[in-house]
Design a protein around this nucleic acid. Sequence first.
DNA 1: TTTCATGTTTTGTCCTGGACAAATAATAGA
DNA 2: TCTATTATTTGTCCAGGACAAAACATGAAA
Lengths: 309, 309
Amino acid sequence: MDFLNHNPNMLTIAQVERETGLSKDVLRVWERRYGFPAPIRSESGERVYDLEQIERLHVIKRLIDRGFRPGKLFSLTAEELQALAQTQATAKEGQDLPLPFRLIMDEVLSDDNRGLRQALSQLLAKQGLQQFVLDTVPQLNEQVGNLWAAGKLGVHQEHLYSEELSRLLRTAIGNLPTMGRRPRVLLTTLPGEEHGLGLLMVEGVLAPEGVHCLSLGVQTPMEDIVRAVVGHVVDVLVLSFSAAFPPRQGVAALRLLRNRLPGRVEVWAGGSMTRATRAHPISGVHWTPELSDCLVRLADWRDRHPVSG
Amino acid sequence: MDFLNHNPNMLTIAQVERETGLSKDVLRVWERRYGFPAPIRSESGERVYDLEQIERLHVIKRLIDRGFRPGKLFSLTAEELQALAQTQATAKEGQDLPLPFRLIMDEVLSDDNRGLRQALSQLLAKQGLQQFVLDTVPQLNEQVGNLWAAGKLGVHQEHLYSEELSRLLRTAIGNLPTMGRRPRVLLTTLPGEEHGLGLLMVEGVLAPEGVHCLSLGVQTPMEDIVRAVVGHVVDVLVLSFSAAFPPRQGVAALRLLRNRLPGRVEVWAGGSMTRATRAHPISGVHWTPELSDCLVRLADWRDRHPVSG
DNA sequence: TTTCATGTTTTGTCCTGGACAAATAATAGA
DNA sequence: TCTATTATTTGTCCAGGACAAAACATGAAA
């Protein structure tokens, strides 16, 4: 194996795709239409990008995620772009929040994982798991989202936040006494959805109700979801979709999956995406855009399935 | 929004890519070369795949993952393919394993998450966290890998195993007393590496040594790794690479990253991939293919940085 | 026999540039 | 002010050629 080839400060298009999250198709069509990025070519004609371009791509990507359109952005100079990013940064400050929230955000912003862990776990202890997940966590998430949108938060800080929160929730759920009452619930996400926090939150709401939860983590192929549902004799399948999941594809995938599951099994679809799709009913799929909807559905399920014997 | 269009049993090429993990390019070039898959076309000429083809693609993908070459597989009929999958299934049985391992594998195979959780946590309690991670977990992983290669294990069972193991490790790590001695270690994976178990294992080895660990979860873009390393004043950066990570790209990415980090910061690269790359030294990067290598490096680091005052 | 170097085949990735579907913005009508 | 059309922008898909990388086969040297 020869790993010695090219200049270590240059990236191939595949590396840029992984690094920035922009597909090869997009990178090429931007180059064609807007003249940027403008990679040099290897001797065999393949695109080779330097670090400056990657950095600029990152800036552009972030601005697009905040709602700007590519057309506008590509006509700007580097300075204007930078200025725009700065302007945005001051837009949505953390407003009048209750003190505990401000504190937690401060820990996130100051990169203090110990402090963050401490603060989160204190809040959890005060409120109890279910309350914490139903009320506090969504507010925290929103706040993190705001700070992110305002450009105050680096990706690593967002990662740190969700890592510590996951850790805390898992621990709390793990320490719950095992009840294993019906319904048996299977939790996972479809391929393409790699955000697993939603699953943990649902589990944090249901487990205290004594529900038998079974999580497969993220990105389980449909075929395997079907197998698991049958194999585990599951009553309810919970799927979570973040806001980043394209609603069209979500609905298409749910239809497809619904078709292949036994009718007996309920499907609950939750997460931010479902706020956009709730107006489009799918027969046999329940939208649970809010966490509390899961509790409503749970009560309903138990009403219809009284414990016999 | 109109979600009502196409037949819910047909998939677009993008859906097939997500579902099977085969890139669009591969799907198209297979069709061109081997005549399979053979999707019908929408009225606008786009590929539309039916469920049968997806299923066959899944089978083929699995066989390729087990070392078969596409060329061979595409000349087989459906029956031969099925037969091959079956044959493989009996190849690598679980051999003479110590009893506790057999037990755990049985729990995995019987889809019993409660039992699995129980068995794992019992083993952990007996051995202690560090020992458990150093000895037992790698053996379990290997065994799961064997069963997978033998076709005995569904994806959902593999997911279940790693989910329960992660849960257990997180809980155990979370219950450790906080020491926060040097070095300060940052753990994450590069974009493209979505397997996070390795990070947990490293943490499970280092945390009992009193190391100040800080995990960012998976797939942190390089730019943000650099920021986090600087922002958190980290001494050591730990990166994990699963066997699925292409060695070439791993080495290229490490070179790139190393160039952008302060020289003071050590980089430890571990995980199965590094067994293939260890022969290719990168200055400033330490290969730690075995977990115990992390302990060696830790001792070395502490030797060179005696606590002053 | 095993190990390593070399050539050959297979396989996956990249390319161009056109077409069009989907998402978004702009405009007209209620 | 709100809602339905129409226009523009933007991302995805396509074909089919080229070639880089990986896997395999062959032969020479240890």
